[in-house]
């Protein structure tokens, strides 16, 4: 029996997910441009693994496969994994991460809409704990040709340590730490001076800042399409800027500038695509602000004082835990009960 309303807006989970994927395209284009086509291979590997894992789990759980495989939610998770993992990660690392995300973090928690944790970020955290070395090898822009990338992805010799360095975030942190010690030859240099090398661009890492710009563009488009609201990106960027700005303002020789933090690592991806995952994120307007601001501060702390290349993943998971309480405490007053 069908009850009112008898009409519906032409909206679907599939179209929402499709738009998220489209919004990632500018960032991916920049990624390919600066870092080579290897990332496309990673995207394909992750997508295939996600679909396979999802299909298997749906079969086991007796859920309609056609309906849920075409909702594209697994592909979004897969792409986020591919885009946050190193582009030269061996194929099995990407596959394992994706399967963990889809099978355990998503499907075992009840499938679409039920996972308390962001699947891609949970996978990232698990893999970086399990394979810290492999998860920390980032080639610089233009450093590796496509063939080398393919060799690295599909087995072959992994003398990557020789050819790849750390991320600009990592590099700067290391440099800043040694600059702090009097024995170091870098002693006394400021962050801006340390960022003189070829690995650094105008704001963040060479190439990386353009990828970030691509994500920013896609994210703004998502806001314009009303797929996401401004709250999470604004609060995340705002809080990251303020936190970084505060420390940088106090001791510019010890900390990177707020713009560097915004343009580096997964900041833009996190602000527009990861923290905005509706399932595992906060839902109320005030809740979103708190959630994203909390994630930004945690990200900063992990980046600057932690040992991992980036802090977004851990920050996201930590804030995911707080979502139920944030949502509960930030319910907006209902009609007729406002105090305006």
């Amino acid at each position: 029996m069908i009850n009112s309303p008898y009409i519906r807006k032409p909206a679907s989970v599939q179209s929402v997910m499709l738009q998220v994927l489209l919004a990632l395209v500018p960032g991916i284009v920049a990624y390919v441009w600066f870092f080579g086509a290897g990332i496309l291979v990673q995207l394909a590997i992750a997508s295939a693994a996600a679909l396979a894992g999802e299909a298997a789990m749906l079969a086991i759980r007796g859920k309609p496969k056609a309906l849920f495989l075409t909702d594209l939610s697994a592909i979004v998770t897969a792409w986020l994994i591919a885009l946050t993992f190193p582009p030269i990660a061996p194929w099995w690392l990407t596959v394992t991460g994706t399967l963990l995300a889809v099978v355990i973090v998503k499907q075992l928690y009840g499938g679409l809409g039920q996972n308390p944790f962001n699947p891609a970020m949970a996978a990232f955290c698990l893999m970086i704990v399990a394979y810290p070395a492999l998860m920390s090898q980032w080639p610089a822009a233009g450093q590796l040709d496509f063939k080398t990338q393919l060799d690295l992805i599909f087995g072959g010799a992994r003398q990557v340590d020789a050819i790849t360095g750390a991320t600009p975030l990592d590099a700067l942190r290391t440099a800043l730490r040694s600059a702090a010690s009097p024995e170091s030859e870098l002693h006394g240099l400021r962050a801006s001076q340390l960022m003189d090398g070829p690995a650094f661009g105008a704001l963040g890492g060479t190439g990386g800042e353009w990828v970030a710009l691509g994500y920013l563009l896609g994210g703004l488009w998502l806001i314009q399409r009303r797929i996401i609201t401004w709250h999470i990106p604004a609060a995340f960027c705002g809080a990251l800027f303020v936190t970084a700005g505060l420390l940088w303002g106090l001791r510019p020789e010890g900390f990177a500038s707020p713009l560097f933090h915004l343009a580096s690592g997964g900041a833009m991806l996190g602000a527009f695509f990861i923290l905005t995952d509706p399932v595992s994120g906060a839902t109320t307007a005030r809740g979103k602000l708190l959630f994203a601001a909390g994630a930004a501060v945690l990200t900063y702390v992990i980046r600057v004082f932690g040992a991992y290349p980036d802090g977004i993943a851990f920050a996201t998971l930590l804030m995911n835990i707080l979502v139920p309480i944030i949502d509960m405490k930030t319910q907006a007053p209902v009609f007729g009960h406002k105090k305006d």
């Binding site: 909206a11 679907s12 989970v13 929402v16 309906l67 849920f68 909702d71 939610s73 009840g110 499938g111 679409l112 809409g113 039920q114 609201t229 509706p278 399932v279 994120g281 839902t283 109320t284 907006a332 007053p333 209902v334 009609f335 406002k338």
Partner: peptide
């Protein structure tokens, strides 16, 4: 489909629920 907590319904609710 399952709810994806996208919040569209809350955005549309005239009773602010």
């Amino acid at each position: 489909m399952p709810c994806i907590r996208c919040g569209e319904c809350a955005k549309a609710c005239p009773a602010d629920l």
